Computed example of a mutant assay.
Amino acid sequence: MITVVKNLEEILASIAISITVVLVIINVVLRYGFGFTLPWGQELSVICFIWAVYLGISSCYKNKLHMGVDAILAILPERALVPFNILIYLFLLGLNCLLCYLSFQYTMLSNKTTPVMGMPYFWVNIVLVLSFGLMALHTIRLILDELKELREA
């Protein structure tokens, strides 16, 4: 159970991208082989792709896999690196919390439905709240790791 929670983004993103790939393949085979497509297939594949992208962003953030600019870190003295990282993470925490809040507001205002399936856009947009909320939690973990390193130094 702990493994599932620990890898939640990766599991959900894998499911979403798998659904996307399967639906696209099925629609291609149906279009060229039989002359028709599943009308809801393209819509669902786009929704799953959106989910896969945002959950992938959160997963990369959790594992510190996003690109960074290390020019400032290269000129800082060794003892200033951890405090500087803490400041960066505090900024990112504020940014992620703000984006989570704004995403929540945007999601709550989603009163339209998708054209083919009639699915409320709430279920499309809620991934924004989930993704930025998870990134805020990961930022708190990164801050605690930096504070632990600062105490050990």
Rank of each mutant, 00 (worst) to 15 (best):
V124M: 03
L76R: 04
L134S: 05
R79G: 14
C97R: 09
M117V: 10
I86C: 03
L147E: 00
F132I: 00
L142A: 11
I88Y: 10
Y54D: 06
K64F: 09
E78Q: 14
S59N: 15
Y101G: 04
T37K: 04
P77M: 01
L144T: 09
M1H: 15
P83M: 05
L98H: 13
K64Y: 12
R151C: 14
A74C: 05
V124W: 05
M1N: 14
H66I: 07
M67K: 13
I57R: 12
Y89P: 06
I88F: 07
V21H: 03
E10R: 12
L98R: 12
V129K: 00
C97F: 13
Y32A: 02
E152G: 11
V4R: 14
V129Q: 01
E43S: 02
Y32S: 02
L137D: 04
Y89G: 05
I15Y: 07
F91G: 10
I11D: 05
W40F: 12
E149Q: 15
E152I: 14
K112P: 03
I50Y: 05
T113R: 08
T107W: 09
L93S: 01
K62M: 03
V53I: 15
D70P: 01
I26D: 09
S58F: 06
L81V: 11
L65F: 13
L81D: 04
N85G: 12
K112S: 07
R31F: 03
T3D: 15
G56M: 02
L55K: 04
M1A: 15
L128D: 02
F104R: 05
L128G: 03
L23W: 01
G56A: 06
I57A: 14
Y101D: 02
P120C: 01
L102V: 13
R151H: 13
E43R: 00
C100D: 08
S110D: 05
C60A: 15
S59D: 14
G133N: 00
S59P: 11
D70T: 08
L95S: 10
F49R: 07
M119G: 00
A16L: 03
A52N: 04
Y106K: 12
A136N: 00
Y61H: 04
F49D: 02
E10C: 12
V5P: 10
V69L: 11
T113D: 07
E9C: 08
V124R: 03
F104L: 14
Y106Q: 12
R79F: 15
V22Q: 07
L102T: 13
T113A: 06
I26M: 13
V4Q: 14
R151S: 15
C97D: 10
I126C: 11
M108R: 11
G33V: 04
I2P: 10
N7V: 08
T107N: 04
A153E: 15
D70L: 06
I11R: 03
L12E: 05
Y106I: 09
V4I: 15
T107Y: 07
V5L: 15
